[in-house]
Amino acid sequence: MPPGTRRHRHPHRLRRGPPRVEYELTELGEGLRAPVRAFTQWLTDHHGEIEAARARHDNA
């Protein structure tokens, strides 16, 4: 090809995998981190009692 007639190609980036979105907590959301952890721990600590109460309710 003579100089000046070359075509320049721009790379076309193909997506690999599905589109991705990343999230992060806002300051307000960060304020929920400790209460949610405490609630999760309470659920873990009382799992047996919760299941027993469910069973009593289901069999009533």
Rank of each mutant, 00 (worst) to 15 (best):
P3M: 08
P3Q: 10
P3H: 06
P3S: 10
G4W: 01
G4C: 08
G4V: 07
T5P: 00
R7W: 01
R7T: 00
R7P: 00
R7G: 01
H8R: 10
H8M: 08
H8Q: 05
H8I: 01
R9E: 10
R9N: 07
R9C: 06
R9K: 12
R9L: 12
H10L: 08
H10T: 12
H10N: 05
H10Q: 14
H10S: 05
P11E: 11
H12D: 09
H12M: 04
R13I: 06
R15Y: 02
R15I: 02
R15W: 03
R15Q: 05
R16L: 07
G17K: 04
G17L: 01
G17I: 00
G17F: 00
G17P: 00
G17C: 02
P18I: 03
P18F: 05
P18G: 05
P19R: 13
P19T: 10
R20F: 14
R20H: 12
R20S: 13
V21H: 14
V21P: 02
V21S: 11
E22I: 02
E22V: 00
E22G: 01
E22D: 05
Y23V: 12
E24C: 13
L25S: 08
L25E: 03
L25Q: 03
L25Y: 00
L25D: 05
T26L: 14
T26H: 11
T26R: 13
E27R: 14
E27A: 04
E27W: 10
L28T: 07
L28E: 14
G29F: 03
G29A: 10
E30C: 03
E30Q: 02
G31F: 05
G31I: 07
G31M: 06
L32Y: 05
R33N: 08
R33S: 11
R33I: 12
A34G: 04
A34C: 07
A34I: 02
A34S: 10
A34N: 13
P35V: 10
P35H: 11
V36R: 15
V36N: 00
R37A: 15
R37S: 13
R37D: 10
A38N: 09
A38F: 05
T40F: 09
T40D: 15
T40H: 11
Q41C: 06
Q41G: 05
W42T: 04
